[in-house]
Structure formats: structure tokens, C-alpha cells
Nucleic acid binder design. Structure first.
Lengths: 224, 224
DNA sequence: CGAGTTCTTGATTATACTCAATCTTAGTGG
DNA sequence: CCACTAAGATTGAGTATAATCAAGAACTCG
């Protein structure tokens, strides 16, 4: 889940259909806080998130952290590079996962349709990451946070009729490490959006988007 | 070319061998300043850079720009997402390109070996981009510039015996838009590295790495 | 209920940006 | 070949944004 321009995400949906394929294994479960894999591990399986939310992270020697992505239902995680995992991955909340053999991605092994679907998911990933570059490199704190909320709202927001409610299973530190900011800045920006009447904060993990249009405008950085 | 940790790049080398495959077309040439494709174009071909340097960019409505990558010899550019290009691509200097049909990547069409090589290149790309996230999100200006020079030095530096010479075909603005900084900051950081005796600046497009070890230390952000 | 973590808010600082001027380089035509 | 121009690079001064440091508030969970 690379949080950028909402429109980008529609292209990802076709992936959901791949679960209907033949060569699949029994669904796996991952409890909140437990790790699916670590950086450097051999890749044997890819996983499509069925429910729950995953967190993909990378560490620098000195402790600085980057959250690479959040894995929401429909997303595929675990793409290998040189056969190895290049992030850590753990669950923010209890999750269910559909595993696919790495060999299906790399060799097409017996299931060309699934092979193709996994390849398409990898290609989507590349394009989504490019969006995220723009966000990390060129957007202000407000733009980043607004973008983040916009995408979450579009992808997993609950329709409350008038407004949209968004659940944030991740901590402020996770959001900060995803957007290249500090927890303090995330907190301040949330407060600022709340005081402007753009969002409401029901509790730490639940916000309501009151003015989605304004939020979208902020995310695009119209400095009028 | 995602400038991060030098070690990452060794993994990319196997890709070079794929040019020996059967299903290839005549080499293409692209003059400096000319575009290979634009964002939104239909993807028909992927290209492996044979010589020269490409620039992949993305624009925001208000003119802010992100350089997504530089394409150096060995690199593959043009991976489709939903069949479309998601960056602009032009040549910084005259370049030669080996084209491969998109269908080889997506359907394996007639050449499983090439299909596999292109897929591996795409997977490498994902991991390299993850490195770049860390750089954009979590590194200081000095760390970014040092990282950039380290990788260029490793990949395309000319061995001058004692030192390593690096050619920079791109402008300061390109480097800035690649690293998420401004041209002024790039300039100042270069000057700072020069005054510290870590690099020498022969001319705007040619720098010499005098103390590679110190540069590497700086790139990793050891704040001692 | 209480301890510990996470979040929020405030005050201050630092890093990198902005704006502006100067210098350098590359390209053009006399 | 050299002056002239335009674009790009450097440097400086001042500023703004987000980071840091620190304290207090609000959650979480045993």
C-alpha cells in the first residue's frame, strides 16, 4: 500500500481475482505483532492479504526505520530479489493470508494464469512505488498526511452516509516512518486538520473525514 | 538506477546476460534530449540500456518534479503498469537501447529464458526502489549526496589508479529532483565535500572521489 | 487500578528552502 | 577567435518547515 494518488489504486483491483486459481495452498493466519518474514530470509512463498493489515519495514544500522508499505486486503507481499526478502514483515492486527509458491511467480510452474497475475501485481507495485517517491521527495508534511488519509479513506474507509470513517491500526510512529516525518509532526498535523474541521479524531485509531474534497486538495498541494 | 547501498547493485549484473537471447530486435538509438516515451503512453517495448544514460521523471501538476531513476547500461526501463508507462523517459546523452517486446515479459511468448530475465529485472527493481525509499525518507542532505556519489562511483566510476573519477551527465537540478533536495543544496553539499577534501570537482560534470571510505561513512550517516 | 507506552503539546533549534546576486559554462554569430 | 548571450551553477542572507528536546496527557493492558 503506497499512499499517493487514489486513482492509482483502481488498477490494483484485478489482482483480487487471482485467488480463484488452482495451485493454491491452505490459507495462513498471522497474529498481530508476529512476523511473517525478516530481511535476508529466503523467499519460498508470496502472500496475498485476505484480511488484516501487514507492515513492511526496513532498518538502518543506526536505528532509523522506513515503513516501506502497509499490506491491506488484496495486496501481495513478499516479492523476492535474488531469492531473498528485503524487508521485515509483521502483522499490525490479526491477518489471514493466501500463500503462493515463489516458483509460480518465477517459473510459471503449472499455473500460467496465476503466474501472470502475480507478475502483474509486481508491475503494479513498481508503479505504485514511483508514486510514493514523489510523496517522500517532494511533498510537505500536510500534503503527505492528507495523501495518506485520502488513500486509506478510498481503500478501506467505512461509509457513514455523510462522512467516511477510517481505521488506523498503525501507530503514529509507523505513519511517521512511512511518510518520512516524526511522530510529533504527524500528531501536530492531525491536530491541525482537526482544528480546521477537515477531519475528526474519534480515538487514536479512528478518524472521520469530514471534508474529503478539502483533504484531497491539500494532498495535491494547491497552494492558493 | 536507484542510488543507495552499493552492495545492492551486484545483484543486478546477471541481467546483462539476457541480451544474448534469441527473440531480440535491432538495437535502437536515442539522441540526447530526445524522449523514449511519455507518461500515459501505451507500452509496447521494454528497453535495456546498452550505452548512454536515460532519465525517468514524473511531474506534479504544479511543476514539482521527481526524477524516478537514471538508466545506466545494464538497466531495464519501461516496465508497464496496466499496460501504460508511468514516467517520462529521455536521454541525458546519446544512448543505445536493446528493445524487447512487452509480450515477452507478460506472456513469455516464445522465449522463456528472456521472459524469466525480464521478470528478475522487475523484481530487482522493486528491491532497489525500497532502498531508495530509505534514502528519500530518512537521510540528510549530506547522506543523500554521499550515497549518490558512492553508487555512481561503484557502478560507472573510472579507475584513475589512486582515485576514482565519476562523470555526472545530469544537471544539478536532476540530482536535486532525484534526491528530494534543491539545486542550491546540491551545490552547497558538493562544495562542502570538496572543501573537506573528500572529492575534487574537475568541472561541473566530472568529480573525483579522493576519499571513498570517508564518502561511504558519510553516506551511511555515522554521526560520530 | 496502576505502570508503561503512546500520543499530544510547547519551546527551541537546525536543516534545508527561498530569494537574490554573482560567477561559470556552453553555445552562437560576427 | 572572441565577444555576447543564455542557461546553469555557486554563494550569500534570511526564513520556514519540520526536527529535537522536554513535559504532561491519554490511552493500553496486565
Amino acid at each position: 500500500m503506497y499512499v499517493t494518488n487514489p486513482a492509482e489504486y483502481l488498477a490494483k483491483m484485478p489482482v483480487r481475482t487471482l485467488a480463484s486459481s488452482g495451485a493454491k495452498t491452505a490459507e495462513a493466519r498471522l497474529k498481530a505483532g508476529h512476523y511473517l518474514y525478516f530481511e535476508g530470509d529466503q523467499v519460498d512463498w508470496l502472500y496475498q492479504v485476505t484480511s488484516g493489515v501487514l507492515r513492511l519495514t526496513r532498518l538502518l544500522e543506526d536505528g532509523r526505520r522506513q515503513v516501506i508499505a502497509f499490506g491491506y486486503p488484496g495486496d501481495i507481499v513478499g516479492f523476492p530479489s535474488a531469492g531473498l526478502h528485503h524487508t521485515d514483515c509483521d502483522a499490525l492486527v490479526d491477518a489471514r493470508l493466501q500463500p503462493y509458491r515463489r516458483s509460480v511467480l518465477e517459473n510459471g510452474e503449472g499455473d500460467p494464469k496465476l503466474h501472470h497475475a502475480l507478475l502483474q501485481a509486481a508491475l503494479c507495485e513498481i508503479s505504485a512505488m514511483q508514486d510514493h517517491f514523489m510523496m517522500l521527495g517532494r511533498k510537505s508534511a500536510v500534503e503527505k498526511v492528507a495523501s495518506f488519509l485520502c488513500v486509506l479513506s478510498d481503500r478501506v474507509g467505512e461509509d457513514l452516509g455523510e462522512h467516511t470513517q477510517v481505521n488506523l491500526p498503525m501507530s503514529r510512529a509507523d505513519i511517521a516512518d512511512f511518510l518520512g516525518l516524526t511522530t510529533e509532526t504527524i500528531s501536530r498535523t492531525f491536530t491541525q486538520l482537526r482544528k480546521s474541521g477537515i477531519i475528526a479524531i474519534n480515538n487514536i485509531h479512528t478518524i472521520v473525514v469530514l471534508r474529503p474534497d478539502t483533504l484531497l486538495t491539500l494532498s495535491l498541494g494547491d497552494r492558493n
